[in-house]
Computed example of a mutant assay.
Amino acid sequence: MSDPNTADCDSNLHASYYADGMQQVETELVENEQIAQSTYRLRVAAPTIAARAVPGQFVMIRLAGVNAPLIGRALAIYDIVNNDQGDPTWVDLVYLQKGAFTTPCSQSPVGTPVSLWGPLGNGFDPRPCDRLIMAVGGIGQTPMLLLGREANGAQAFGRPNGWAKDVELIYGARNEGLLAGVDDFRQAGFDVQLCTDDGSAGQQALVPAILEQRLQEIGDTASVRVVTCGPEIMMEKVAECCQKHHVDCQVSMETPMACGIGICFSCVAKVKQADGNWDYKRTCVEGPIFDAGKIDWS
């Protein structure tokens, strides 16, 4: 039987983004540290997942042996860390402490057993461009570190890399304390622009306004590409801005997921079809990455 992860498996029965190739791992927390206000980064040893993942994919994770919550929580893959031999070994996830999984997880010490399965979802397309702009808000920075590193050629994931000349991050939050991982993005060589609702860091502005300003400054946007993740209203405004300037834009939808593998249909998004109508698509399998112009935001 052919590998369901290969492109020639894109059929009605086995599309490359289906969960056929996921791995389930029983492991434990190697690190679990606070990196911003109510925001934590955990690390687990999961080499079979780390070796398969591409930027934009996610995993489902739950505390092993805990029945509340019973189902896993979908978290974007934030980073993949190699061992001394250069082999992908550890998976980093960043999460906001606010619910039935993330609150006990934030209180769990190193060595706590966890279950995770993935990688899941379709991931971002490695579309060549001169300038990649990552426009994110809230906790939406989490899928962008790997994408930016792939774009500038610093990291490879078994597909083309080094496909952008410049990488920018526009990152917004309510206040300075909620900005998480900023140093990681700067150390990766990205141009980082911050904005906050209260002006405590960067400009006192919203992400779509900063993006509009940048696109006007650039002028010729023919080889600019935008990717976005964060609150839905922010992504909608980013999509409108990109449409106005004729800029290629992909969105990473943060629709809440239950199963993560396309069984329950709880995470559907309205996506426009070629005939102009829309249909429901599962964020966990047909997404979470969609072309911004195909999302019906109503």
Rank of each mutant, 00 (worst) to 15 (best):
M235W: 03
R73H: 04
Q187S: 10
P288I: 11
S298M: 12
Q187D: 13
G162V: 03
Q141N: 07
G99L: 15
G111Y: 11
R174G: 13
T89L: 13
V224I: 03
F190E: 06
F58D: 01
D125N: 13
G172M: 07
D79N: 08
Q273M: 15
G199P: 07
P4C: 05
A76H: 05
A7H: 07
I289H: 05
M257Q: 07
G162E: 10
A180K: 01
V182C: 06
D10W: 05
L178D: 02
E31T: 12
L179R: 09
G260Q: 02
F58G: 02
V271Y: 00
G189W: 01
W117T: 15
D3W: 00
P256D: 03
A64Q: 06
A100F: 06
P143W: 03
P231C: 07
F185I: 06
I71W: 02
A180E: 10
R149C: 11
L29T: 12
E212Q: 11
C9K: 08
P88K: 04
E232V: 08
G172Q: 12
D130R: 12
T196W: 00
Y95A: 13
S252R: 00
G202L: 15
R43D: 05
Y40H: 14
A50Y: 00
D3N: 11
G118K: 08
L206N: 05
D87H: 04
D130Y: 11
L116A: 05
P160T: 11
G137E: 09
F265G: 10
L93T: 14
T89W: 08
N175C: 08
L194A: 04
N83W: 07
